[in-house]
């Protein structure tokens, strides 16, 4: 046992200079990469928090249904209404169901769901974990021999990754309902024709892409919310910042991912 009181030499020296803006950016990037790496490591290692994952799926999914229903329905009606004048000019109003189908499945459905989820779920995760951090609940879990990362982060990220694709499919369905009511009222298109038009237009690749995108969006929203909350600075101001920053960052990343997925999808379609 070492008994002298001099500083230990086997520990890394403390940084004496504050890092600059660029250095801080790369330090943050490394932090995020480490956080994501830790997520995948904890994901595969036992024990598994199944009960908490199911509870989080309920919180993330079921509790967002009403908001998603209203938003999806309105999106379907508004999109159909806004597209009608352009199609009428070319005498192509019969293409309205096809246009709605392509737009909703390929872009609007996944994007609207992700943005709503970033606002509702991302902020809630950021605020909840931030608040737990401030009130030392995360420390309390750690000292009780429990892995707070697995219990709080892994369960929430799994929940968002599973439920946001499900919510996306639901948004698409509800948007179709809204679109059908609109075209049925204006163009007198029957339900059978509407369904035939939709499924005649969209492909398996469209649905598959929407699902994959939603998985990526769900993961992004979950990991950003958890990262911001888990690393929130102390104090109530930190909780607010964590919630706010979760939404802004997740929304920004969702748009970036949408752009990349579009490029990839175009490349696949072109080949």
């Amino acid at each position: 046992m070492q008994t002298e009181t001099e500083p230990r030499t086997d520990l890394p020296p403390k940084a004496s200079v504050e890092p600059g803006v660029f250095a801080r950016f790369f330090i943050n990037l490394a932090d995020v990469a480490t956080f994501i790496g830790r997520f995948f490591r904890e994901l595969v290692l036992p024990p598994y928090e199944f009960k908490e994952i199911i509870r989080q799926c309920y919180e993330v999914g079921y509790r967002s249904l009403l908001l998603i229903s209203i938003t999806g329905f309105i999106t379907g009606i508004v999109f159909t209404n806004q597209s009608r004048p352009s199609l009428t000019e070319f005498g192509a109003t019969s293409w309205l169901p096809s246009l709605v189908a392509i737009a909703v499945v390929r872009a609007v459905g996944p994007l609207v769901t992700a943005l709503i989820a970033a606002g509702k779920i991302g902020s809630s995760i950021g605020a909840e974990l931030g608040s737990m951090n401030v009130t030392e609940q995360i420390d309390a879990m750690e000292v009780s021999g429990t892995n707070p990362f697995k219990f709080l982060v892994v369960s929430r990220v799994i929940a968002t990754t599973i439920t946001i694709p499900m919510l996306t499919m639901y948004t698409i369905f509800v948007a179709f309902v809204g679109a059908f009511i609109n075209v049925n009222q204006n163009e007198l298109i029957s339900l059978t024709s509407f369904i035939q038009e939709i499924f005649g237009t969209i492909t398996y690749l469209d649905i598959f892409t929407a699902l994959v995108k939603s998985v990526v969006f769900g993961f992004t929203i979950g990991i950003v919310g958890c990262y911001k909350g888990y690393h929130s600075s102390r104090g109530t101001e930190g909780v607010g910042k964590a919630a706010n920053s979760s939404v802004v960052t997740a929304m920004f990343l969702v748009f970036v991912e949408e752009l990349f997925s579009l490029q990839i999808l175009n490349a696949i379609r072109g080949s």
Binding site: E136, S144, T146
Partner: peptide, 26 residues
């Protein structure tokens, strides 16, 4: 850490859980 009991200044009870669940947790 199982051999160490830590009583926090603000109690640090898990506020999304009932008292029963708080005690069951560890």
């Amino acid at each position: 850490r199982q051999k160490i009991g830590f009583s926090f200044q603000n109690s640090a009870l898990y506020d999304s859980m009932s008292i029963r669940e708080n005690l069951e947790f560890p």
